[in-house]
Structures are given as structure tokens and as C-alpha cells.
Amino acid sequence: MTDLSQKAEALIRRYFAACNAADHAELVACFTPDAVHYFPPGLPGAPWRGAKAIADGWVWCVKTLGSQWTIEKVLAGADGKEAVIEWTHWKTAVGEALRGDEWYIFDDKIDRIVEIRAYYASPVDKSQPINKLHDFDYAGRGFAMAPQSEPPKID
């Protein structure tokens, strides 16, 4: 791993820590002001445009859905400009989980996220408590099988 790829991974981990803490200011600080977060079809208001809109969205998820996220895998380019991860979105208040991947693009200093493109492991099926790939051995591959912590209480 190069210093630049480590810097990219550290930024992703900082972003996820801010998501899990519902830390609006820290979330905004992880993005360029004009950053864009793209999602598969079906999410109202998507894509989220701008650092504030992205932060607002994730704080809403923690407050409303009890969201917590785990990073399962990270692969960062040697130049630190792009990375891809696998994640799990635990929606603890509604008893659901969603798995997927995201492609990241960073600014030239690799200290802010410019763009995220999210891809879900499967179409969201509201009849399933945990959306996942068919017959994929998540536990056997070392993926988290429950959230690592409780979401913070937000008034």
C-alpha cells in the first residue's frame, strides 16, 4: 500500500466514522463543497449534491432509521485518486440491512471526497430484513453480521 492509497483509505474511514456518529460538521469537512453522491434508482432526492446535502442525508438516516455502517473491504488506487469499498448499511430502527459497493473520487490533495457512486448488492427488497447477494457467504468471508455499535441518540 502506498502513502497515497493509505491517505485515501483513511479519508474513507474518517467519513464512515462521521456517518456513524451523525457528526454533521465532520461529514461536511470530508467533502468538497460541490461533491455529489449518486445512488441507484429509487432513493428520493438522489443524487445528493453538495457537502451539506450529503451530511443532512446521513444524519437523517441515523436519526430516522438508526443507521450504522461497517466497511467490509477497501481497495484504493496507488495514486490515491480513486478507491472502491464494500459496505453494510445497518438500519437498526427498522431491522434491515443493505450491502453494496461505492466508487470514490478524491480531490488532488486526497483530503476531500469529490464524488461517490453507490451500487447496491441487490435491488432493495422490502420483504427481506437483510438485502444481500444470493448465496454469498457473508459470515464465511468475514463480513460484519450485526452493527458494531448502537447509533447515537439525536434529538
Rank of each mutant, 00 (worst) to 15 (best):
residue 1 M to N: 05
residue 1 M to R: 11
residue 3 D to G: 14
residue 7 K to P: 10
residue 7 K to F: 07
residue 9 E to A: 09
residue 10 A to I: 03
residue 11 L to P: 05
residue 15 Y to R: 14
residue 15 Y to W: 11
residue 15 Y to P: 08
residue 16 F to T: 12
residue 17 A to T: 11
residue 18 A to V: 08
residue 18 A to Q: 03
residue 19 C to V: 14
residue 21 A to M: 00
residue 22 A to E: 09
residue 22 A to G: 02
residue 23 D to N: 14
residue 23 D to W: 11
residue 23 D to P: 07
residue 23 D to T: 11
residue 24 H to V: 09
residue 24 H to N: 10
residue 25 A to P: 07
residue 27 L to N: 00
residue 29 A to E: 04
residue 31 F to Y: 12
residue 31 F to S: 00
residue 32 T to F: 01
residue 36 V to S: 04
residue 37 H to F: 13
residue 39 F to L: 13
residue 44 P to I: 08
residue 46 A to N: 04
residue 49 R to P: 00
residue 49 R to D: 03
residue 50 G to V: 04
residue 50 G to Q: 01
residue 51 A to F: 04
residue 54 I to T: 00
residue 54 I to D: 01
residue 55 A to R: 04
residue 57 G to V: 02
residue 59 V to F: 06
residue 60 W to M: 08
residue 62 V to Q: 04
residue 64 T to P: 02
residue 65 L to D: 13
residue 65 L to W: 09
residue 66 G to S: 08
residue 68 Q to R: 15
residue 70 T to E: 07
residue 70 T to S: 14
residue 75 L to F: 13
residue 77 G to F: 02
residue 77 G to L: 08
residue 78 A to L: 10
residue 78 A to W: 01
residue 79 D to V: 09
residue 81 K to A: 14
residue 84 V to A: 12
residue 89 H to C: 11
residue 89 H to N: 14
residue 90 W to A: 02
residue 90 W to F: 10
residue 91 K to L: 15
residue 94 V to W: 06
residue 95 G to F: 09
residue 95 G to E: 05
residue 96 E to L: 08
residue 96 E to K: 13
residue 99 R to W: 11
residue 100 G to I: 01
residue 101 D to Q: 13
residue 102 E to T: 15
residue 102 E to Q: 15
residue 105 I to A: 12
residue 106 F to S: 07
residue 108 D to I: 09
residue 110 I to T: 15
residue 111 D to E: 15
residue 111 D to P: 08
residue 112 R to I: 04
residue 116 I to G: 00
residue 117 R to I: 10
residue 118 A to H: 03
residue 119 Y to L: 14
residue 120 Y to V: 03
residue 121 A to K: 05
residue 125 D to H: 05
residue 125 D to P: 02
residue 130 I to N: 11
residue 133 L to C: 04
residue 133 L to V: 09
residue 134 H to M: 10
residue 136 F to V: 04
residue 137 D to M: 01
residue 139 A to D: 10
residue 139 A to F: 13
residue 139 A to S: 13
residue 141 R to D: 03
residue 143 F to P: 00
residue 145 M to L: 12
residue 146 A to G: 07
residue 146 A to W: 09
residue 148 Q to V: 06
residue 149 S to A: 14
residue 149 S to I: 03
residue 152 P to H: 14
residue 152 P to Q: 09
residue 153 K to R: 15
